[in-house]
Amino acid sequence: MKVTHLGHACLLVEYPDARILIDPGNFSDFSQVRDVDAILVTHQHPDHLDTHKLDDLLARNPKAVLRTDTGAAKMLQESGAEVTTNEAGQSFTIGSVTVTPIGQLHAEIHPYVPRIPNLGLLLAADGHSSLFHPGDALDGQPLDHVDVLAVPVSAPWGAVKETIAFVRRIGPQFVVPIHDATLSEPGRAMYLKHIGDFGLDGGVTVRDLRGEPATELNG
């Protein structure tokens, strides 16, 4: 399994027979992405789904299936897009990859912003590391072991104590920082150090893929 961080919450995850793009939002650069088999969206917020660039993305990837949470699907269907709705716990396959949507709601930002649907995504394939992208919620609990955990580093709804508790509960082999576009460089480094030092007893390996080419993440 190879992973490319395309900025903020957007990951391109590649297997020998499947290329999967997750959360192409407006803080990310996916302008060169082609030949993907699936475009998966955890929720409808624009930093995870850039509707202004979606038509171009689909045109460059005519074979890609678009699958989203219920909230994003409803929004896209109203605009005439062809989209399949993901449901929590109902797995589907992209090539040899089993994708399991996990969760229910976006984390609370504050009481004045209504919560919306959010479905994290667990990707698993025989012979490859599993990867969990939680979207914007830290309460999802995959039933299987997670090798690679995509970890939101900073958000209006987040706190580093909650992030660390999330990592410790899941217990991955690696963490990949995501959801970091609002941070300064010193601030981002501070968050990554906290996650690396305290994410597990004795620390957890942080694989910072920002600005890096496709990187193999197999244990």
Results as ranks from 00 to 15, higher is better:
100 T>Q: 07
89 G>S: 11
102 I>Y: 09
102 I>V: 15
84 T>V: 01
108 E>R: 14
96 S>C: 02
94 I>E: 10
85 T>E: 15
109 I>P: 01
80 G>L: 07
108 E>L: 15
79 S>N: 14
97 V>F: 04
98 T>F: 02
100 T>H: 05
104 Q>L: 03
78 E>C: 05
106 H>S: 00
109 I>V: 13
84 T>I: 01
103 G>S: 05
100 T>P: 04
89 G>Y: 10
93 T>L: 11
81 A>F: 15
89 G>L: 11
96 S>R: 07
89 G>K: 13
99 V>F: 02
94 I>G: 01
109 I>Q: 03
81 A>Q: 12
106 H>N: 01
90 Q>Y: 06
82 E>L: 12
103 G>N: 08
99 V>M: 04
104 Q>H: 08
86 N>I: 03
98 T>R: 14
111 P>D: 13
87 E>S: 13
99 V>K: 06
81 A>D: 07
86 N>V: 01
78 E>D: 15
102 I>A: 09
81 A>L: 13
100 T>D: 07
87 E>G: 03
108 E>N: 05
91 S>G: 09
94 I>W: 08
106 H>G: 00
89 G>Q: 12
78 E>M: 07
94 I>Y: 02
111 P>E: 13
92 F>V: 06
94 I>K: 08
91 S>Y: 02
82 E>G: 05
86 N>L: 10
82 E>M: 10
90 Q>E: 13
95 G>V: 11
79 S>G: 08
85 T>P: 02
83 V>K: 09
96 S>Y: 02
110 H>Q: 10
111 P>I: 05
94 I>H: 04
110 H>V: 00
105 L>A: 05
78 E>A: 09
97 V>N: 05
80 G>T: 07
96 S>T: 12
79 S>L: 15
95 G>W: 07
103 G>V: 11
95 G>F: 06
80 G>H: 03
82 E>C: 03
90 Q>V: 14
94 I>V: 15
110 H>L: 06
91 S>L: 04
93 T>C: 12
93 T>P: 00
106 H>Y: 02
82 E>A: 14
107 A>H: 07
105 L>F: 06
86 N>K: 10
107 A>S: 06
78 E>W: 09
110 H>I: 00
82 E>Q: 14
85 T>N: 01
87 E>W: 08
82 E>V: 12
86 N>D: 09
95 G>P: 07
104 Q>D: 12
106 H>P: 00
97 V>W: 01
111 P>K: 12
84 T>P: 00
94 I>T: 14
79 S>K: 15
105 L>T: 07
110 H>G: 09
97 V>A: 08
93 T>A: 15
109 I>K: 04
102 I>S: 09
91 S>N: 09
92 F>Q: 05
90 Q>H: 11
96 S>F: 02
105 L>W: 11
89 G>F: 11
111 P>G: 11
78 E>R: 15
79 S>E: 15
101 P>K: 03
109 I>G: 00
86 N>W: 01
93 T>D: 14
111 P>A: 10
101 P>I: 04
100 T>W: 03
101 P>W: 01
100 T>L: 07
93 T>N: 14
90 Q>A: 12
84 T>D: 07
103 G>T: 10
82 E>I: 12
110 H>C: 11
105 L>Q: 13
101 P>H: 09
83 V>G: 09
93 T>Q: 14
109 I>Y: 01
84 T>F: 00
95 G>N: 10
95 G>T: 12
